[in-house]
């Protein structure tokens, strides 16, 4: 491990540059995301916030034409190192998407999917599995609603419940970081509120990095806030400060709705 100060950071990014083909999407990103809190990423479309988020569990690479320079240390380990196992990266760093994407399996099997893949070899009796399902669903406040229909298709749930399920299925493998890419943008206001509440509940146990287009959401549901523009980090601070007393004029302009 490194110096004590760096232990407070879950994601420590140094001089990250990223290109899609010849187009540079991220410029010299230096970011420290604190452990156990919710950090929101805001900025106008195309500012690189999603690109950054997707670099943290390396799913950008799937596109094939992406080139990355710099380091992203997650819990003290550079995930861009050659000897890093990408399957472990994806296990430790869970991701939630804009549109809920439950698997075409039952509710129960959705929860157990990651568990069955990553916890193989360790003794896991049927009883254990039931525990895993129950505690994951309880954690996302879904247990009481679905406990009687665990064998039903996950796609029958409402979008809000599906999104909660997508969060729940990450939990059994005990990820350190949860990345959320506009997790509420497909939901109605009530669903948004419920999922936001849930995310707020989860902080402390997980480091949560959330991309959002919704300024109000960033403000009420995050503790730190990062403002990005044109592939660069403009401002990063406590959410209240970023919103009330932004240090940069670009931040102020964006927050006041002058562009975006």
């Amino acid at each position: 491990m490194n110096s004590p100060a760096r232990d407070d950071y879950a994601v420590h990014t140094v001089m990250l540059n990223l290109w899609y083909g010849t187009f540079q999407a991220l410029f010299d990103i230096n970011l420290d995301v604190k452990k156990g809190i919710i950090t929101s990423l805001i900025g106008p479309s195309g500012c690189g916030k999603s690109t950054y988020l997707r670099s943290v569990n390396r799913i950008n690479e799937r596109l094939g034409y992406v080139r990355t320079e710099g380091t992203i240390e997650v819990l003290g380990k550079n995930i861009l190192d050659a000897n890093v196992e990408i399957l472990q990266v994806r296990k430790q760093i869970g991701m939630v998407f804009q549109r809920p994407n439950p698997l075409p399996l039952s509710i129960r099997d959705n929860i157990l999917f990651g568990h069955n893949i990553h916890m193989r070899g360790q003794k896991s009796s049927k009883f254990d599995r039931e525990d895993v399902v129950e505690s994951a669903l309880r954690r996302v406040l879904l247990w009481d609603k679905v406990k009687d229909r665990l064998q039903r298709k996950a796609t029958e749930l409402s979008l809000e419940e599906q999104q909660k399920l997508c969060i729940a299925r990450l939990l059994p493998v005990k990820p350190a970081v949860l990345l959320m890419d506009e997790p509420c943008s497909a939901l109605d206001p009530k669903g948004t509120e419920a999922v936001e509440e849930l995310i707020w509940e989860l902080r402390g146990d997980f480091t949560i990095l959330i991309v959002t287009h919704n300024m109000a959401q960033a403000r009420r549901a995050s503790e730190e806030c990062i403002f990005m523009l044109m592939g660069k980090v403009i401002e990063h601070g406590a959410t209240e400060e970023v919103f009330l007393t932004p240090r940069q004029s670009e931040t102020a302009d964006y927050i006041e709705g002058r562009y975006g």
Partner: peptide, 16 residues
């Protein structure tokens, strides 16, 4: 395709 991506994002191999 989303189903495959959901799996990959949880660290499943292609075969899984």
């Amino acid at each position: 395709r989303e189903f495959r991506e959901a799996c990959w994002n949880m660290g499943a191999t292609r075969w899984q």
